[in-house]
Every structure is written in structure tokens, then in C-alpha cells.
Design a protein around this nucleic acid. Structure first.
Lengths: 144, 144
DNA sequence: TTATGTGCAAAATCTTTGCACATTA
DNA sequence: TAATGTGCAAAGATTTTGCACATAA
């Protein structure tokens, strides 16, 4: 019945979490697209698949997937949380258009070149980072 | 009566905005501390000064100050907006502790060293950026 | 069977808005 | 006085939670 058991589903199972149809639907949406979604967008996409799901189920599953480092939460100016697949192979950040709100992935990252001496000095142990560039995308650029 | 008219207040005046007591209280809080505040924290601090203020007034003023680039909005994982004085002299970013939630300012910035060719390629015109390092602060570090 | 997950409804949080009244310039 | 700002109350939006029922393993 299930043609493709994804690595994510295997991971959940192996950690003792159940594979419900709702949970599978949420995971499918992330797997189908390398993009990021709000809880609302996930809700809508599940509906499109003519399946039903409850908002609390979505939030509870997003929380679980975040906790397991399968997805991560992006916090952008709008105040609405966006979630996207944790992509350990293609580390990236985002360009965010101040006009149209579009968020484009870019595979640039300043972290490795960063001088970490300040962190050591402060006794701060880094585990992750976020880098966002705000501005105007190709379509919204004023000098276009 | 007003002993120190700040540059911010001058700026507002010169742009045709009125200097109300509520607005002055909000600005004072930012001027008194190089730290960041939530709307709630600003509300509490104004109350401490035994002055009254309404939440909508706070939000409306924060919006205005953001628009005028006097303060800026920080978006962190919690989902609550934090605001801090725009500090053009001391550009900085934040270290955010995943345990206690503390946000520490650091004067490191990877932006200038960043190779911008990718942005040009994409036709993206950058205007600002955010860089946050998550991890564990000195007090919460596991290897302490 | 039993631990885990879901749906539902309600609440909690944070933020925004309309409108009448108040205040600054 | 005229434009701008505030308070109030209500609504919006997003997210969380308690509890009974449902389901995967």
C-alpha cells in the first residue's frame, strides 16, 4: 500500500512514533517540495489532496518534526512561522523581498568564514544559525 | 520642562509627528537601554514609571518608529516581536540561548566579507540583513 | 491492548482596527 | 482649529491545550 517509505517515516517509527495518515500527509508535503510552508499552507495542501486534517494535528506534528530536527522553523518579519525540511546536504539561507514577500533560497553562508573567537570569549556554544538578507527581488527592484 | 530633547524626538518633530507624552515614554525606554523589548515589556516599564499607556498606542508607536528606521523589529523563534534601537554606529547581531532564551548582542557581522556575486546574479538588491547564532550561553552551556 | 495520536472546541497570545474623544502644534 | 494621536473595546490571526475518542503497533 505504501509504495515509498521515506527515511523520515523510518526515523519516526524507529523512535517509537506512530505513522498515522495525518502525519504521513504532513511529511509528504515537505517531501514533495523543497520549499517552506506555513501551518495554513499545509492545511490547504492536505485539503487539496481531498483528505481531512485538523489544525491542532498540524501544529502538533510540526512541533514534533522540529524537535526531531527533521524540519526547522523560520521566523520572518511577518510574524507567521514558516517551516521547511532540514536540508543537511544543501545548507542555505534566504533572500526576502520587502515588497512581495517572496523568500528565495540561496546557497551562500557566511558562517564558516566567521571569526568565532568572540563566541569562545563569551563562552557561547553555537549549534545553529540563521542568516537572512532583506531587500528587493528581481521583479520588485526599484532600478528595474 | 523637557530637559533633554533627544535626536529622535527632534527627528519626529521635524517630520511633522507630534510629541505626545506616551510617545515620549516609549522613546525614553529605548534610550535608557541598549537592549531590546517586546511590546509587553514596554508596557510594563511605562507602568513602572507610574504612567499610563494603552497597548494599541504602544503598537502604533512601534510601527511608526520602525517605519522611520529609528528602531527595528527582531524576529526570533518565540514568535514574539522584539524591538530595539537602530544602532548605526555599532552594527551588531545576536547570540540566542536555546535554553534560557537570553539574547546577547555581538559586534560580529559576516555581511561585508560575504561574496555578493550570487545576489547580483539573481538580480536581488539587498538593503538589510539579519544574522543570529543559536546555541548555549555561558550559564547554560552543557560542558560547563 | 495500550501507548500514542487526533478531533473538537475552547482558550491563550499577540497584534490590529474603528471610532469617538483628546491633544499637540 | 485642524491635523494627529490616544483609549477603549472589539475583532483578527496564529498557536496552544484539555479531554474524550480513535488508531497504530
Amino acid at each position: 500500500m505504501v509504495s515509498k517509505i521515506s527515511m523520515i517515516e523510518d526515523k519516526l517509527k524507529s523512535m517509537g512514533y506512530k505513522l498515522t495518515s495525518q502525519r504521513r500527509l504532513v511529511i509528504e508535503i515537505f517531501e514533495e517540495s523543497p520549499y517552506h510552508f506555513t501551518a495554513q499552507e499545509i492545511f490547504d495542501r492536505v485539503k487539496e489532496k481531498s483528505s481531512n486534517i485538523n489544525f491542532s494535528t498540524i501544529y502538533r506534528n510540526l512541533e514534533l518534526l522540529c524537535k526531531l530536527n527533521i524540519i526547522c522553523k523560520l521566523n520572518i518579519s511577518s510574524g507567521i512561522s514558516h517551516f521547511e525540511l532540514m536540508d543537511t546536504e544543501h545548507h542555505h539561507h534566504h533572500l526576502i523581498c520587502l515588497n512581495c514577500g517572496d523568500m528565495e533560497k540561496v546557497d551562500i553562508c557566511p558562517y564558516n568564514q566567521l571569526n568565532k573567537s568572540k563566541l569562545e570569549e563569551l563562552g557561547f556554544v553555537p549549534t545553529e544559525h540563521k542568516f537572512e538578507i532583506y531587500g528587493y527581488c528581481k521583479n520588485c527592484s526599484p532600478n528595474k
